[in-house]
Amino acid sequence: MKKALVLGASGGMGYALIQELLERGIDVIAFARSKHKLQALYGEQKGVKIYSGDIFNQNDLLSAAEHVDTIFQSANLPYEQWEEKLLPFFEKIIHVAEATEAKLVLVENIYAYGKSPGSKVAEETPKNPHTKKGKVRLQVEKRIKASNVLALFAHLPDFYGPNAENTLLHFTLENVIQHKSALYVGHKKIAREFIYTPDGAKALVNLALHKQAFGQNWNIPGYNVITGEEILRIVYNINGYKKPVFTVNKGMIRLVGLFDPTMREVVEMFYLNEDPVVLDGTKYEREIGPLPRTSYPDGIKQTLEHMLAHK
């Protein structure tokens, strides 16, 4: 890999991917809508070319993808747009990848797996999505596999890390750094899985550098499962945070959803907070190598430090 395009470069995983690619000496095109945010993130970094454009504009995508050999797709849309716009968006990405003959690395979530089978899910676990969003993600996967694009699909749990702002843990930590009362989504005693974005990025780039990884699905799990109570104890040990942390339950989200279209769609995915899906990373470790795994204390500490530095 000599030159890569990262879609969704202003987001948490996009940011981590660009840092990882640069560290390996790979030139990067950072693509997102906001030129101001791209300049704030990458304006001083060598090896990055900023490209602000519309992910729905095929000409913008084609122009950004000129002379790249790998496209990392980490852009996302608001939940309320998935049903109507997600597949058409991926049709544009497919066209661009076919036109440029670039390989495609898909940063995927766990929605297509559906409800937890009661054990860790492996790549061969049947995908039986029961939600609208899970079904559309599976539809996208099937469409890409039916195309002429050389692609790999990497499933990851919920993110946290530097610049990962549109995430559940950021929702909690943004008040923690201000020593204000905070909110935690889901029951604080239920253990679930999160991945530190630099770990996810390292694993994604590792996969992209292995030719045999393409044409396959891969699971990239986090460090392990952790409860909300354990997360808050880690935060306390880092900065002495002692303010109350209130639980956000499904009923509260449903109520907010009466006025907020995004939160209305969040209700459907709340099952992941009640019966979490946990990924099995055996295949990756068998065929690629050890999974990058930053401990929660270290990852949360570095996330808080980044948030404070960019507050």
Rank of each mutant, 00 (worst) to 15 (best):
F89H: 11
K301C: 08
E287A: 11
K3V: 00
P290N: 15
D158S: 12
S10P: 01
E305G: 00
A182R: 10
E229A: 06
L183Q: 06
K250Q: 15
Q139T: 13
K2P: 00
K2G: 03
G200K: 01
R143Y: 05
F270G: 14
T262F: 15
M13R: 04
A164R: 01
A201H: 04
T227K: 09
Y236V: 10
V105D: 02
Q302P: 03
V225T: 15
L22G: 07
K142C: 07
I144L: 00
N273E: 15
Y184H: 06
N224P: 07
K242P: 08
T247M: 09
I50D: 10
A203T: 08
I71T: 06
G289V: 03
D199N: 07
G47Q: 04
Q178V: 09
W218Y: 13
E124V: 12
V256F: 14
I195W: 01
A201Q: 05
A182Y: 13
S181F: 06
F214L: 11
V107D: 12
A182F: 15
K35I: 10
F194H: 02
N109M: 09
V136D: 00
A146P: 04
V136P: 03
L106D: 10
E20W: 03
K49G: 11
T125Y: 04
F153T: 03
K37F: 09
E123D: 09
L62H: 07
L204C: 07
A99S: 15
K103G: 00
Y271K: 11
Y15L: 10
E174A: 08
N109C: 13
N76R: 09
L106P: 06
L168A: 11
I195L: 12
H210S: 08
L38Y: 02
L22A: 03
K132Q: 15
D27I: 00
L150A: 13
F153W: 14
L17E: 00
F270S: 08
M263Y: 14
N148K: 15
K37S: 09
A32E: 02
Y111K: 01
W82M: 06
R24W: 08
V256D: 06
K243M: 15
L173F: 07
E193G: 01
R264I: 04
